[in-house]
């Protein structure tokens, strides 16, 4: 069998035995207790400054960022954004209870549909699992709440992230993911998104809007000083 042939060739090349207990202990220890690497200082800031860094880094990679005082203000902020871009007052979102609970009826002109995208939606709305201040990155997880297709098929993607869920670095997000999903368990898809889709494949000129969204708008909820 190819599996055994490959593994035994590896062991022959390395000059090790499959039964070596010390090697097995080293490996299982690293998997059980992942050692923390070197964390850059850039994101290691108190909460208010961390949120500001997140917004600045996201804008640097062509996101737009708006801050709202609390979740109640999201529908209005979304409607403002659509108007400001001359977009139709319609969007699609996932079943996320944090989005479902919002006062959408305060924006009666806004048509909100729920579910995964089939490619016909101009605007998608998602709720992020976390943000990473170091690089202005959004972390989105798949599941019934936030379909992955909404992250990629719409032309415009609006993402809500709570200020208190913006961490300094990716490693801290992994800690939370392990707490929420269990050690060694992942949702089907975790998307780290850093800016709208782009390509440099024609003469190394960077252009926005390759296959994913052309625009990425982030609503940071709370954490205002």
């Amino acid at each position: 069998m190819s599996r055994d042939a490959i593994l035994s060739r590896i062991r022959r090349s390395l000059g090790v035995a499959a039964t070596d207990i010390d090697r097995r202990a080293t490996v299982s220890d690293r998997l059980m207790r992942p050692p923390r690497g070197l964390i850059p200082k850039r994101g290691q800031l108190p909460p208010a400054e961390r949120t500001r860094l997140f917004a600045m880094m996201a804008e640097r990679v062509n996101c737009t960022v708006a801050r709202v005082a609390d979740a109640e203000a999201i529908p209005e902020a979304v409607a403002d954004y659509l108007r400001g871009r001359n977009l139709p007052a319609a969007l699609r979102r996932g079943a996320d209870p944090r989005l479902a609970a919002l006062p959408w009826d305060g924006q009666p002109q806004l048509a909100v549909s729920v579910g995964p995208s089939d490619g016909q939606d101009m605007v998608g709305l998602s709720h992020a699992f976390a943000g990473v201040a170091e690089t202005g990155t959004l972390v989105l997880v798949s599941g019934e709440d936030n379909p992955t297709t909404l992250n990629f098929l719409p032309e415009y993607h609006i993402v809500v992230v709570r200020a208190e869920e913006i961490e300094g670095d990716t490693e801290t997000v992994w800690d939370r993911l392990r707490r929420v999903y269990g050690k060694g368990v992942m949702p089907r898809t975790v998307n780290m998104v850093t800016g709208p889709s782009r390509s440099g494949d024609i003469e190394q000129t960077i252009l926005l809007g390759a296959h994913g969204p052309r625009s990425l708008h982030i609503l940071v909820v709370g954490g205002q000083d």
Binding site: M57, V61, E134, T135, G136, T137, S142, G143, M186, P187, R188, T189, V190, N191, M192, V193, T194, G195, P196, S197, R198, G212
Partner: peptide, 14 residues
């Protein structure tokens, strides 16, 4: 600093 999309896939859809 980061590419736009770093995507982690684990198994088929749940």
């Amino acid at each position: 600093d980061m590419s736009c999309y770093t995507t982690f896939s684990t198994g088929p859809r749940r």
